[in-house]
Design a protein around this nucleic acid. Structure first.
Length: 478
DNA sequence: CTTGCCGGGTT
DNA sequence: AACCCGGCAAG
């Protein structure tokens, strides 16, 4: 798997989508359960279980980790996980999220070899960096000193970067946009969102950090006292590289990039991962799971198919925007998931429109190794811990299924439907008055059975007067 | 659909 | 105030 995705996606928040998902619904679902499996005198395998599965399953996955104690890094991830689970719980009623929460993931229990990541424990510097990245990924406020404390030599400025292709630009543009939209909140809360400079720096940081993790491939984890200077790690051993190479072959297949191995051995050019996150556009029209790779395509689809407009006409009043959401698909995970399920190689062409609807009702049997984050609850908390590989952004509140958050305190007023966080992010999202938003004084329905239920209509005379008057029951209060 | 109950009407 | 009920929202 790829650290970059975790970090990158996490840093841009969720949302969702949302989310959620979350989506909003770009709810988030989270769901990477990381179980570091430490072998004696051996490499540390870090199991990324990309699971948007149910809470119990996730929990059981974590608790069934052969009793391994979590490293400090693991604890961090645990926090992420916890938050993510809460997000998931909050978004449990989200249709998108539900569909994005497959309960059977190929990665569970290590059934998918491709999800193992080799971690190099020899480099504490990387450990610190990773830890910081993870904190950043959770949207925690990182003291500038903490960031600056990283040796500059650890900032892997990509060398010899070649002009990237169209897909790269798309991904980059999407990354920039998403980072610009969210980074000030997540990474630098004090920055005014309108000031582009911090934001751009933020996404640059995100990218560079991401590259640092993905290119060397030798993450470190603080598993023991490794008195090794925090200098850039030497290239991995051949065995390690073989392992890593083996695990990433699927990516090369889909990326259709001839060069495949050099960066893993010596050249830190972050070639491999840059294509992995593909921005897709998913039609949110009811019962339509159309996913297209371009916004214009999805708009055309919506315009013609759902809005019944002339396909020849380019006229657009922007209404289409409300019917699709932008999702980011981890092509690596997707590919790995697919390759693990089917003996045949996936097509080498770009993201086909036929790829399994990532966030929709995916049958368990064809669940792809991917996470959906929807976390459509736009709270900072939910944004802060996306830790997902598929970032979903549901752009419009009314599209996101309403999450009913159980009231905790008595008398707490019911909140209107959660607003997908990207409603804030997207400019074109009109600032509309909150829909209907009833006065909010209505009491939440109580759990207890009332007189009507207890006694029935036959014994209506046994009801309390309030019940008889169709008022709030006074006998069986909550 | 049932259930709970708010809001408002009538006595 | 006591009583009744239309209608809404949640499940």
């Amino acid at each position: 798997m790829d650290a970059r995705y975790i970090l990158e996606q996490s840093s841009v928040g969720t949302r969702v989508g949302g989310a959620d998902f979350n989506c909003r619904a770009g709810r988030s679902v989270l769901c990477d359960t990381r179980v570091p499996t430490v072998e004696k005198n051996g490499p540390v395998f870090y199991k990324l279980v990309m699971d948007g599965g149910s809470v119990p399953e996730v929990k059981s996955e974590r608790t069934s980790s052969k009793g391994n104690e979590l490293s400090p890094g693991g604890r961090i991830l645990h926090d992420v996980e916890k938050t993510g689970l809460e997000d998931q719980k909050d978004t449990g009623s989200s249709g998108i999220l539900k569909r994005a929460s497959p309960t059977h993931c190929p990665g569970i229990n290590g059934q998918l070899p491709g999800v193992f990541m080799h971690l190099d424990i020899r480099n504490p510097g990387k450990q610190a960096e990773l830890a910081n990245n993870l904190r950043a990924a959770q949207g925690r406020i990182i003291p500038p000193t903490a960031i600056q404390s990283l040796p500059s030599s650890h900032i892997p400025v990509p060398r010899n970067r070649k002009p990237s292709g169209h897909a790269d630009k798309e991904v980059m543009a999407a990354t920039v946009l998403t980072s610009l939209s969210t980074s000030p909140l997540v990474l630098n809360p004090s920055s005014a969102p309108t000031v582009p400079e911090p934001a751009s720096r933020a996404w640059k940081d995100v990218l560079s950090n991401s590259y640092s993790s993905s290119t060397s491939g030798n993450w470190s984890w603080d598993t023991s006292d490794q008195s090794v200077p925090s200098t850039p790690s030497p290239p991995l051993s051949n065995d390690t590289n073989k392992t890593f190479l083996h695990l990433t072959q699927g990516d090369d297949v889909i990326e259709d990039v001839p060069e495949s191995t050099h960066f893993m051995f010596e050249d830190p050019i972050p070639r491999k991962r840059k294509n992995s996150m593909k921005v897709m556009f998913k039609c949110l029209w009811k019962n339509c799971e159309k996913v297209l790779s371009t916004s214009s395509g999805i708009q055309r689809h919506i315009r013609t198919v759902h809005l019944g407009r002339n396909c020849d006409s380019d006229y657009s009043d922007g209404e289409e925007d409300f019917y699709y959401s932008e999702i980011e698909v981890n092509m690596d995970s997707l590919t790995e998931g697919l390759s693990s399920l089917t003996p045949t190689s996936p097509t080498t062409s770009g993201p086909p429109p036929v790829f399994p609807p990532p966030l929709t009702a995916v049958p368990h049997s064809e669940h792809i190794n991917m996470n959906g984050s929807h976390s459509h609850a736009p709270t900072l908390l939910s944004q802060s811990a996306p830790s997902t590989l598929c970032h979903i952004r549901t752009d419009h509140a009314y599209q996101g299924p309403v999450t009913h958050v159980r009231t905790v305190s008595i008398g707490e007023k019911r909140q209107p439907a959660a607003i997908t966080h990207t409603t804030v992010i997207k400019n074109h999202a009109l600032i509309t008055p909150p829909p209907k938003s009833t006065p909010g004084t209505r009491k939440p329905r109580g759990e207890a059975k009332k007189c009507r239920k207890v006694y029935g209509m036959e014994k209506r005379d046994m009801w309390c007067t309030a019940c008889r008057w169709k008022k709030a029951c006074q006998r069986f209060t909550d």
